[in-house]
Design a binder for these strands. Structure first.
Lengths: 238, 238
DNA sequence: CAATTTACTTCACAGCGTATAGTTTCTTCA
DNA sequence: TGAAGAAACTATACGCTGTGAAGTAAATTG
């Protein structure tokens, strides 16, 4: 170990270069969309040859996969932080905070949102199981926390739910059930449905489809949240 | 006029070639995704040179824009047909039919869905106002019909809505208000929110994000519809 | 100091959109 | 019928992309 805390100069330089490649790639994405992530453009920006990048990422898809992971993790961090920052005693505020953070992140990082949820980049094919199932599951777990917070008030609506544990992916359940042992399958289904609601509105907005219809997508989203909280039966000020 | 009903052999051949280009492009899209729509591939398939296509479409984006229009129109046709086919006397069934047709179309034509709602194709930039605002508005009008059918039962939930006509795009209102003169702004907002709900669930499914969470996205969507009808307060069998 | 590993460059290839120029074929009109 | 013109299409070329193979220079290691 050295003063830099690394395992030698070589490894440190390598890590720095890797970080710079990702940084430049993200900058290109932010300015020109996911399509702008080309090896040659990154190399140009770094004063290198495109092929030099192959020393760090086996292929362009590998790089993109890494980026998706990073960006997805940033999103998960953002919504988790908003959740934690809101008072645990007031589910309505917490839920609203989570969802607002979700939309805000997407609107601020539209290219990141596209990278995660869209066709990321020309010809990109995700590796088996998707590029970021982990971050995806973090988001889903956050959503389940949301549903769990509301569940005492809302479960009466789902008493004849047909959902069983077998309707869900085992990987998701492995994360969700330990965290919320008392939650029934119907609540997980509710969480996924809420995800769909929020994702739909945000996605239409980010991809510019809402813009052709409403001049105020933010207002629409806020209305959605009001109705969501109301639908969940969560008391508005506790 | 001739027996073929065309304006001359030349024009007919031209129309046929145009149609073939689009047909081949759609076939390529269906098999390889929107990315597979390349002029050279189309030309190869047709036994032509890539440049020959420039006689029919000024640029590749032009072709893609036309395709989006066609595909979007097909989607609009599908949901409209489902709406019309369902009994006008039962809003619950009509709404369910519309939404089911929406998801079914998307699941059957995932590449078409991506073409319409995703980053269509590498480097594609939609012309001003989007490529298919017309078809988009047809879908929105259908959604508004949905909201209108439910409105008598559900308006009591939105009596203190803050929405005004200025919150919506004029082009949308021009189509919607004549068709539903008595509908308030709050109902249009509801329609857009419902669009978001459905789009989100379908979009997550089509893009493979649901697959990592649930083994049964169809069931989830059906649950959504049950809850949607319930939320709207529409009587279930009239 | 010599051997090896690592980082990077150079060259090459195929595929992409598309601009320009040239060629062939069809339509039209005197 | 034959010449003029338009239309359809091809050929060539340029710059962009990802990526493979081979070569080079520097750092590390024995």
């Amino acid at each position: 170990m050295t003063v830099t805390g690394s395992k030698g100069r070589r490894a440190r330089l390598r890590a720095e270069t890797t970080a710079e490649i990702k940084k430049v790639a993200l900058a290109l994405m932010a300015s020109g969309g996911p399509d702008a992530i080309t090896l040659r453009a990154i190399a140009r920006e770094m004063g290198m040859t495109a092929n030099a990048i192959y020393g760090y990422f086996a292929t362009r898809d590998d790089l993109v996969t890494t980026l998706i992971n990073d960006v997805y993790t940033a999103l998960a961090d953002a919504v988790d932080a908003a959740w934690e920052a809101a008072p645990a005693t007031d589910p309505a505020i917490r839920i609203t905070a989570w969802a607002t953070a979700f939309r805000t992140w997407a609107v601020v990082n539209p290219q990141g949102f596209r990278l995660i949820y869209g066709d990321p980049v020309p010809g990109y094919h995700a590796p088996e199981g998707g590029p970021a199932p982990d971050a995806a599951r973090r988001v889903c777990t956050g959503l389940t926390a949301l549903a769990a917070a509301a569940w005492p008030h809302t479960q009466h609506l789902y008493e004849d739910s047909a959902f069983g544990w077998s309707d869900f992916d085992q990987g998701l359940l492995d994360k969700v059930r330990p965290a919320f042992p008392d939650l029934p399958p119907a609540a997980v289904a509710l969480a996924l449905r809420i995800w769909g609601h929020l994702h739909g509105l945000v996605s239409l907005e980010v991809y510019g489809h809402m813009h052709t219809q409403t001049t105020n997508p933010e207002k629409l989203f806020e209305e959605e949240l009001v109705q969501l909280v109301q639908m969940l039966g969560v008391p508005r000020r506790s």
